[in-house]
């Protein structure tokens, strides 16, 4: 494997975003790119990352390899990069280590690190193609604020999507709260758009603890996509350049 990423910061942000959900995971490398899939310890949330080969320049992967990496170790090494550094990931056949080289774009500094790999026997889950009943795109900062605000009142949030809009509401010991968003187009700042594409009304309840955790990815993308269908895990997607993505799935809370 040899994969050069213009922005070391991208991988750093991805790792920062998922590190509290998953600890040890396989980075599956093949000629289409680098993918990661892992469930959190409680087995109610799933992280799925895809960095397509187009996100790298150049990208070369001659044989499929799984790089088992401890994310705390990877985070430590990625913190050694400067924010504008270029990152090249390298691994041999049947590797013991993954090699990370940081290059400064405007100086001649080159730093190099190896991270020891681990054997991770990870269950691989099939993620079905799903036509969701509601697809909502909204500013990622807005979603983060809603989740954080409602978490001050309750452990869970009800997300209801109708043709009127999307309503986030909660009920807790001190009282209740709700935020409703309607479709909104901002020509000057499209990252502020709210788009709601609905085929049938949806109402589901989720644990806010997980949603707040997913929102750590907000720095990766100005917009977040929420996809919901009744009795199906919620998909929270942060789109990255070149069709790469970071996705989180969360099983809804179901009545007692």
């Amino acid at each position: 494997l040899e994969a050069r990423l213009e922005q070391a910061n991208l991988l750093k942000k991805v790792v920062d975003a998922i590190k509290d959900l998953v600890q040890d995971c396989n980075f599956d490398c093949n000629d289409s790119g680098i993918a990661l899939q892992a469930m959190d310890n409680s087995h109610v949330a799933l992280v799925s990352m895809m960095l397509k080969s187009e996100s790298f320049s150049p990208f070369r992967c001659d044989r499929n390899i799984a790089l088992g990496i401890n994310l705390t170790s990877l985070q430590k090494v990625l913190r050694c990069a400067n924010s504008e550094d270029i990152l090249t990931l390298k691994a041999e056949d049947a590797p013991d280590v993954v090699n990370l080289v940081f290059e400064s774009a405007d100086s001649d500094r080159l730093s190099e690190y190896d991270i020891k790999l681990m054997d991770i026997d990870q269950e691989h889950l099939g993620i079905p193609e799903t036509e969701y009943a509601a697809n909502i795109s909204m500013p990622s900062a807005e979603f983060q604020k809603i989740c954080r605000d409602l978490m001050a009142l309750s452990e869970s949030v009800a997300i209801e999507c109708t043709k009127e809009g999307v309503k986030f509401s909660c009920n807790g010991d001190i009282g209740s709260g709700s935020v409703t968003l309607r479709s909104h187009t901002n020509v000057d700042k499209p990252e502020n758009n709210v788009e709601i594409d609905l085929t049938e009304p949806v109402a589901l309840t989720f644990s806010l603890k997980y949603l707040v955790n997913f929102c750590k990815a907000s720095g990766l993308s100005g917009q977040v996509k929420l996809c919901l269908s009744n009795e199906v895990p919620l998909l929270v997607e942060y789109g990255l350049a070149s069709n790469s993505y970071l996705r989180f799935y969360l099983a809804p809370k179901i009545g007692d």
Binding site: M39, S42, H43, V44, A45, L46, E123, H124, L125, G126, I127, P128, E231, V232, P233, Y249, A251, P252, K253, I254
Partner: peptide
């Protein structure tokens, strides 16, 4: 929990 069961049902091991 039901949540765990649901995630397992929806994302079967492949």
């Amino acid at each position: 929990t039901l949540q765990q069961i649901l995630l397992g049902l929806y994302f079967p091991s492949s």
